[in-house]
């Protein structure tokens, strides 16, 4: 099997913030309904739609929705390098950053290291309402309290695709045979998935698009999620400066709205104190 490099291209201009990806992701990956004691910081959302705006007032105000998930960093993968347990690895065959909850000891160092807030801690044991257990996805093992989890590009679907290929007598998966749940659910086709090593794939082409950008590219983590927008202000919002070092896009630019989640998420201040960064309220993340 030739080595793959699975990645995504997300067209921010097409995302209308409906949240279907978040729902599809939770259902696919056996994320339990929110526990009674849950708050914004303790909930689990492997993919999360943030609302950002250009900081101006009416009539100049523009806003956009940005789905943020694990960026599957290819270089210096921050979570993998800090994990004291080797519970995180980068699969050289697929480029997928995997998390092994059974191996995780719950120190949450990876959550502090992740520049994208893409990792979540299980504060509670999963509980499903009576009868709902029957609807769980058998291809994904539920996690227990005290471990970290995150997006793995719906790895259960990769297993299923491999089995279908094996039934046809091959190890090679056809493009389109393996697609994560969020991609499948997106009604506007804003999220596309494919092999970045395959120059003919839509994702590889989108990654080379002039309007394409990645979140915090400056950190040099080589994320495999490529975003795309025709709007300058959207593209800029993703490029925070290196800590203590002004970046040409950011000179003289203070976060325009302290309530602006992506600004809060990506502002350099949070790299020193991730847990104190103001997290968006649910209202703001989705329907704000």
């Amino acid at each position: 099997m030739s080595a793959k490099k699975y990645g995504m291209s997300i067209d921010v201009d097409r995302c209308n913030g409906c949240g279907a990806c978040m729902v599809a992701c939770a259902v696919e990956n056996n994320i339990p309904p929110a526990h009674a004691g849950i708050n914004e910081r303790k909930g689990i959302t492997w993919i999360r739609v943030y609302k950002v705006d250009n900081g101006e007032d009416y009539p100049g105000k523009r806003s956009a929705f940005v789905p943020v998930l694990c960026q599957h960093c290819g270089e210096h993968t921050p979570c993998a390098s800090v994990c004291p347990q080797q519970a995180v690895d980068v699969d050289p065959q697929t480029g997928i950053v995997g998390q092994m909850p059974e191996r995780c000891l719950g120190c949450r160092y990876c959550m502090a290291a992740c520049p994208y807030h893409a990792r979540y801690f299980n504060w509670f044991d999963p509980v499903w309402p009576a009868g709902m257990e029957k609807t769980l996805n058998p291809d994904v093992a539920p996690r227990m309290r005290g471990v970290v989890e995150k997006c793995n590009f719906c790895h259960g679907r990769l297993h299923a695709a491999k089995q279908r290929a094996a039934a046809a007598g091959t190890e090679e998966i056809q493009p389109g045979d393996y697609v994560p749940a969020c991609v499948e659910a997106c009604p506007t086709g804003a999220i596309r998935f494919g092999d970045l090593n395959d120059a003919a794939s839509e994702t590889a082409k989108a990654a080379k698009d002039a309007n394409s950008f990645r979140l915090l590219e400056k950190l040099g983590t080589d994320p495999k999620i490529y975003y795309r927008s025709k709007k300058d202000w959207v593209r800029q919002i993703a490029s925070a400066p290196k800590v203590g070092q002004p970046h040409e896009n950011n000179v003289g630019r203070t976060p325009r709205s302290a309530r602006d989640p992506l600004v809060a998420l990506l502002a350099p201040a949070r790299s020193s104190a991730p847990s104190s960064a103001p997290l968006p309220t649910r209202k703001e993340t989705l329907h704000g």
């Binding site: 519970a87 690895d89 699969d91 065959q93 697929t94 995997g98 092994m100 191996r103 793995n152 259960g156």
Partner: peptide, 9 residues
């Protein structure tokens, strides 16, 4: 054994 998720889910 490229990755743990090869055999785990």
């Amino acid at each position: 054994e490229h990755s743990c998720l090869e055999c785990h889910k």
